[in-house]
């Protein structure tokens, strides 16, 4: 009886894995097929994998530039968010004042704002400043979700660092800012790295703001890939090669921060 139960459970886990992994398997294998194989029905299950689609996308499309755009924009906005957000997170962890809870909720709530409400004013502003379709425009707009995310998440990590060590340092004559830099910061480092990577991940995946703010010069990968759908028609093999290449950095980063992923995606609510 127990034996039988176990078998059923393993089968069910298998079914779940197939459901959640098949689309990934499908897009990856499609990127390694010829066009005929990619769209053939019945599908070709066994074939000689080709890298031709990858070289084609890399050499004959704007993919490398889009990749670079995504990279520059994500890195810059994350850098700014961490630079501003880490001290703020520490400050909010170690200093109490009236209405602190309200302030924290306000910071959190900026993440819940409907993106359309954020983008219309920024679109008009950037149009007047003539910086539409620039890296700078996206870097600024991405601060709207990255900064509050970094502050909120890192505050949680700082809260987990025991205050006694900093207090001891204060007794030894360190200033409070010195205690932050030399003691709390290194101790919270794993959490800080995780928040940074998660923030990069969100920026890399972001589509809505990039769709509205970029056309050509600063176009990011998600926007470029959405554009292929219209233009490439049934060039499924090339589309999927681009899609896979866009996802690889994200999957690598996600595996690095695996332990913190749920915590990040739930804004620290689930540890």
């Amino acid at each position: 009886m127990i034996r039988k139960n176990k078998v059923v459970m393993f089968i069910l886990v298998g079914v779940l894995l197939v459901f959640f992994l098949f689309p990934v398997y499908w897009i990856v294998t499609m990127s390694l097929k010829t066009r005929i194989q990619a769209i053939s029905i019945p599908p070709v299950w066994f074939f000689k994998p080709l890298l031709k689609n990858y070289t084609k996308v890399l050499l004959e499309s704007a993919f490398p530039r889009n990749f670079l755009n995504s990279f520059i924009i994500s890195l810059s906005t994350v850098f700014l968010s961490v630079l501003l957000g880490t001290p703020a997170a520490y400050a909010l962890s170690r200093y109490n004042f009236r209405h602190k809870r309200d302030l924290l909720f306000w910071i959190l709530s900026t993440r819940f704002a409907p993106p359309i409400a954020v983008i219309i004013p920024f679109f008009l502003l950037f149009r007047d400043l003539k910086i539409l379709d620039s890296h700078l425009a996206l870097i600024i707009v991405y601060l709207t979700f990255n900064l509050s995310f970094i502050i909120w998440l890192m505050r949680g990590f700082f809260n987990e660092v025991p205050q006694e060590l900093e207090e001891a340092a204060l007794v030894d004559g360190t200033t409070d800012l010195g205690a932050f830099v030399r003691i709390a910061f290194p101790l919270a480092a794993p959490g800080i790295v995780a928040s940074t990577i998660l923030s990069f991940l969100f920026s890399w995946n972001e589509f809505f703001f990039a769709l509205i703010l970029t056309r050509k010069i600063a176009q990011t990968l998600p926007v470029a890939i959405s554009g292929y759908i219209g233009f490439m028609g049934i060039e499924w093999e090339n589309m999927s090669a681009a899609a896979v290449m866009a996802s690889i950095p994200i999957l690598v980063l996600a595996m690095i921060v695996q332990k913190y992923l749920v915590r990040g995606l739930t804004l620290g609510a689930i540890k």
């Binding site: 689309p23 990934v24 897009i27 890939i225 959405s226 759908i229 999927s240 866009a246």
Partner: peptide, 18 residues
């Protein structure tokens, strides 16, 4: 973890093809 970290545009594209 893969579905939720995969770039949403890629998710949409994959499902559209399927």
């Amino acid at each position: 973890l893969i579905p939720m970290v995969m770039t949403p545009v890629v998710v949409g594209l994959t499902w559209r093809l399927m």
